[in-house]
Simulated assay, not measured.
Amino acid sequence: MGNLKDLATNEVSRTDKTDYCGNMVYENEILSKILTDDGYITLNGTAPTYHYYLKDHQGNNRVVTYWNRSQWIAEQVNHYYPFGGLFAEGTTTSSK
């Protein structure tokens, strides 16, 4: 514990680079995400997927959802304690 070891070049398996330019996110110099006030857009090739935040009365993101061309999918669901702490976070494939 406490000893640092320098890694040789052959010991590094992968290096990722993320750049933030305004509301655009580039990963390894490829546009991967566009941030908006209502959520974000991910790009898979040239096909965009729109992810929306559903907020509660205090502005907390309760649900992240997206349309998969046939139904709404709840991607992430958050629950909060009355004092504002995160109670539970989960992912689901529900179409509710």
Rank of each mutant, 00 (worst) to 15 (best):
N23F: 09
D56A: 01
T46E: 06
L7V: 11
N23Y: 08
R14Y: 08
V77L: 06
Y52V: 05
V25A: 03
E11M: 08
T46I: 13
N60Y: 02
V12P: 07
V77T: 00
D56H: 04
D6Y: 12
Y50F: 15
D56V: 02
D38M: 07
Y20A: 02
K17T: 14
H51I: 11
D37L: 09
D6H: 14
D19L: 10
S94C: 10
N44E: 12
D16F: 06
G39A: 02
M1I: 12
F87Q: 01
Y52Q: 12
I30N: 05
I73C: 01
N44V: 13
T92K: 01
N23V: 08
Q58L: 13
M1F: 11
W67N: 14
L7C: 09
M24H: 08
K33H: 09
C21P: 01
K96S: 12
Q76K: 05
L4V: 14
T65H: 03
Y50R: 10
E27G: 10
D37C: 09
P82N: 08
T91M: 12
M1V: 15
T36Y: 00
E27Q: 15
Y40Q: 04
T36F: 02
V77N: 00
K55E: 01
T91H: 15
V12F: 14
L86C: 00
K17S: 10
L4S: 12
V63H: 07
S13L: 09
A8E: 15
V25G: 01
E75A: 06
D16K: 03
H57L: 10
E11Y: 08
R69Q: 14
R62L: 04
G39N: 02
Q71G: 06
V64G: 05
E27T: 14
A8G: 13
A8Y: 14
V77K: 05
Y50Q: 10
V63R: 01
C21A: 11
S32K: 12
T92S: 11
A74D: 08
Y81E: 08
T46S: 11
N44Q: 13
D56M: 04
A47T: 15
C21V: 15
V25L: 06
K55N: 06
Y52A: 05
L43Q: 04
Y20F: 13
D56I: 08
N10C: 02
D56R: 00
A88F: 03
N61M: 12
Q76F: 08
P82V: 05
K55T: 04
A88S: 09
K5D: 13
G22K: 03
K55H: 04
Y26A: 05
P48S: 06
V12G: 07
N28H: 11
I30Q: 10
T36S: 01
V77F: 03
N44H: 15
G39I: 06
T36K: 10
S95M: 13
Y50L: 12
F87S: 03
R14W: 03
I41Q: 06
A47S: 13
L31P: 00
V64R: 07
D56C: 00
I73M: 03
N61D: 11
T93N: 14
P82C: 04
T65K: 11
H51V: 11
N3Y: 08
N60W: 04
R62E: 01
N60L: 10
D19Y: 13
G22L: 04
T18Q: 05
G90K: 13
L86N: 04
L43D: 09
V12K: 08
K55I: 06
N61C: 08
Q58T: 13
N28Y: 14
